[in-house]
């Protein structure tokens, strides 16, 4: 029961976007002997899930989602050093980037936050990332999924170049590719050989979950 109190405090701090309480909530949970893994999976993650649901229903906007993710990061900073190696569960991996020549990062960041909420490990390469660097990251991290974001019609061709690079490096068959951003249409995604064009972050993340869920398209 006491455990519930601490986990609820973590959840509440995130749902109420409360910078003032999250660190204390995290510290108190650890001091009360709550397993750090449990603090994350039953405190932090459910908090972010609630925020995600509120975003989906229109009660919360992008601003709240961004702030909740920031609150979450503050909590994680306190908890992370206490995690034992064994607690670091093996999550499904996503490499994500905004492509070369493009610095629009809001969409990519939302996707990243929502993927983390769903338990993915996300390697966020940042913005203005060349096809070569994305390919290298796929080689290095061996993710299940590669996500690319482009907001400019000038830069969306870089997604196609990246897919070509992956093919040349013999990596294309090892990773699912999901693309997003306003000018990217399903036709365009088809032309460049991506696996999926996300309508928005929520729908895209659902697709990612489906891909890694056994029996639903996951291996």
């Amino acid at each position: 029961m006491a455990e519930d109190k601490y986990l609820a405090a973590l959840r509440e701090s995130i749902v109420h976007l409360d910078f003032a309480t999250i660190e204390t909530a995290a510290r108190q949970a650890i001091e009360a002997g709550i397993d750090p893994g449990t603090a994350i999976t039953q405190g932090i993650v459910p908090g972010m899930t609630i925020v995600g649901e509120k975003f989906e229903s229109g009660e919360y906007f992008l601003s709240e989602l961004v702030v909740a993710a920031e609150v979450m990061k503050m909590g994680m900073k306190v908890i992370n050093p206490h995690l034992k190696q064994a607690d670091r569960h093996i999550a499904r991996k996503v490499v994500i980037a905004t492509v070369e020549g493009d610095h629009h990062d809001l969409g990519k960041n939302i996707v990243t936050t929502l993927l983390i909420t769903q338990g993915f490990e996300v390697i966020d390469l940042g913005v203005d990332i060349t096809p070569g660097r994305i390919t290298d990251a796929v080689k290095e991290h061996q993710p299940d999924i590669l996500g690319m974001s482009a907001l400019l019609s000038l830069t969306m061709t870089k997604m196609g170049e990246t897919i070509e690079n992956l093919k040349e490096a013999g990596l294309r068959d090892r990773v699912r590719v999901i693309v997003g951003g306003t000018p990217v249409t399903p036709e365009f995604a088809d032309i460049i050989g991506a696996d999926y064009k996300a309508l928005n972050a929520l729908e895209g993340v659902k697709k990612c979950v489906e891909w890694v869920t056994p029996g639903k398209g996951g291996q």
Partner: peptide, 13 residues
């Protein structure tokens, strides 16, 4: 600026 949602974070903090 909005990189990483910075404006929203400033506005909240």
């Amino acid at each position: 600026g909005s990189e990483g949602g910075r404006f929203f974070i400033h506005h909240a903090k």
